[in-house]
Design a protein around this nucleic acid. Structure first.
Lengths: 331, 331
DNA sequence: TTGTACGCGTTATCAA
DNA sequence: TTGATAACGCGTACAA
């Protein structure tokens, strides 16, 4: 059993109130007593009990973080951002996986509520219809990452997928490309839709007509997608392909190599995410970098502001183009 | 302010004791009262306050997890394992980054102790001399991952680096290789030392003499290591190279491609870790897979056993060989 | 079957 | 300058 202030009080021959005050340097306690008790506390190995403090103060100084899976590099970087800001502000972080399972998500949110976390940050969930009423009852600030919802306690930080995609297409257009393909996916509807939208917007602005044949959205694994997509793009006469994400893009690079197609000379490839490996593949991948760390940092910063009672605005973070070897001027 | 059992008691016209008992289906309470109160509780949106429960029970049902950085895929997989087992056992997980900074590590352990976590799991730290006394004072089960220390409250789960390395070398020897190189690192002394040891042991068992020229340990980035190491291996006449990890191995693959060297025909390459990208590079990488998820699961399972008062044994987990395209029979 | 009283460790108020 | 007391929300002897 850890040492309590009562234990110290008994030995020091004072009341536990005095100990409590001395330990936090209360002005009313004499310098002598204060010093004596602080030394005694150290000697006895006293550690304040946060649980008791929380019960009294009605604040736990904890944040609940709900994620789909921590094994996703995107998620883990976001968590890193959240944790670092939280730790610096003396908040501890509860990590709870939902495994992308709605029921489990409801369950972990319930657990966090029982633990009386001061706020909740939710990454990539489907909140929406699922358990809005649950969240509304918790009466605690909630910050959603990459997911918008309206509500008194709901706030959000999101990545600007549309802007990111536009960045990619604009880059390719500036390099002289006109026949640009989009290699999309099926299981992540929202961001895929936004990236496709950015693709179309950028083309429109450059007065390039949209061609359905240049958009390929296959229902298969990330790695397979490149193999199956490549012939379709070649048939459609694409000179460049913008991919939903880096993993898809790397699959496409692999397919090119297998077909003896040289990137970027015969085909330009752009990814999205800037995962670590984008820089190591050959040729290294031009891609759109999402500020993942910043996403987490800002989410937590917003949370702190909310806890201070400030009113805050939802935030949308811009992406950045990272130019590497997989894109080049069209000959 | 959340609803408390007193609030319910007031409205139900009973004592809070009755409410407390009714809510957990205590046998002494009449079925009628029980049902009435449970319904009322649901109606009022009652959620038990874990903080108060913990103060009474002297158990928080929380685990503190100390890691260097969650952004490391190895770490995040371990955390996933820990969290899943913890969640299934109704434990919540505090995540605390140390950034590989000893002072910060001491600080977060202190924080976890204040929060009265029931146990602590520490991944890849340097515990040792640094703050053993601190840990000893906490008087709570501590499970170390990939790090052994002796102590009443200290336990450990580790990966068998030596066995893993032997697996790799044995595989190469079976393929007919005799001149096998080791591409090591400098900043991770322990595991690098073990893998080198496994390398040497395997050679010894096959009666192949150890040649210092075949061991290259460069102080540079993972990616650069391959480029700088390749000429040294070629000079030493290596037909295969076992690399400290996959990132290093992929750097070597890249260097080979740049030099026009065909893998595996002209050089075999083996990695360690089996990171996700090992299967996507060309040629796909033969490597040693560490049971990272299992590492976390077992660490948490051991922790649960300790919390139940069982006596447990430290565990050493074996690695597994994953054969892919970067290795082949020596012509 | 239900209620009273107390304690878990801490902090704040009020009185001395 | 210090101490007695109550309170935070809950659970459990013990009493009724």
């Amino acid at each position: 059993m850890p040492v309590t202030i009562k234990d110290i009080a008994k030995i020091a021959g004072v009341s536990h109130t005095t100990v409590s005050r001395a330990l936090k340097g209360h002005a009313a306690i004499s310098a002598k007593t204060t010093e004596r008790i602080q030394e005694l506390a150290k000697l006895m190995g006293y550690t304040p009990n946060t649980v008791a403090q929380s019960l009294f103060s009605q604040r736990t100084n904890t944040i609940g973080m709900v994620i789909t899976t921590i094994a996703d590099p995107f998620v883990s970087k976001v968590v890193e951002g959240v944790e670092s800001v939280a730790q610096a502000a003396s908040y501890s972080l509860f990590l709870a996986n939902s495994n992308n399972n709605p029921e489990q998500e409801v369950a972990v949110v319930e657990t966090l509520h029982r633990r009386r976390v001061d706020a909740i940050i939710i990454s990539a969930s489907r909140v929406g219809k699922l358990y809005r009423s649950q969240l509304d009852q918790i009466q605690v600030p909630i910050v959603l990452i990459n997911n918008q919802e309206e509500g008194e306690y709901l706030h959000s930080v999101t990545i600007d997928d549309v802007q990111g995609a536009q960045l990619a297409i604009k880059h390719l257009i500036e390099l002289g490309h006109r026949r640009i393909g989009y290699l999309g996916i099926h299981n992540h509807p929202k961001s895929n839709k936004c990236r496709l939208e950015g693709y179309q917007l950028a083309l429109e602005r450059a007065n390039i007509e949209f061609e359905p044949a240049l958009v390929v959205q296959l229902e298969t694994t990330y790695a397979e997608r490149g193999k199956k997509g490549l012939p379709l793009f070649l048939e459609a006469g694409a000179t460049a392909v913008f991919c939903y994400n880096d993993t898809t893009a790397i699959g496409l690079l692999t397919a090119c190599r297998e077909q003896g197609l040289v990137v970027p000379d015969q085909l330009n490839v752009v990814g999205f995410d800037d995962i670590e490996f984008a820089q190591y593949v050959t040729p290294s991948l031009t891609t759109i970098s999402q500020p993942r760390l910043k996403l987490g940092q800002i989410a937590m910063t917003m949370t702190l502001d909310l806890l201070k009672g400030k009113t805050i605005q939802d935030q949308v973070l811009s992406c950045r183009l990272v130019t590497r070897e997989s894109t080049s001027h069209l000959n």
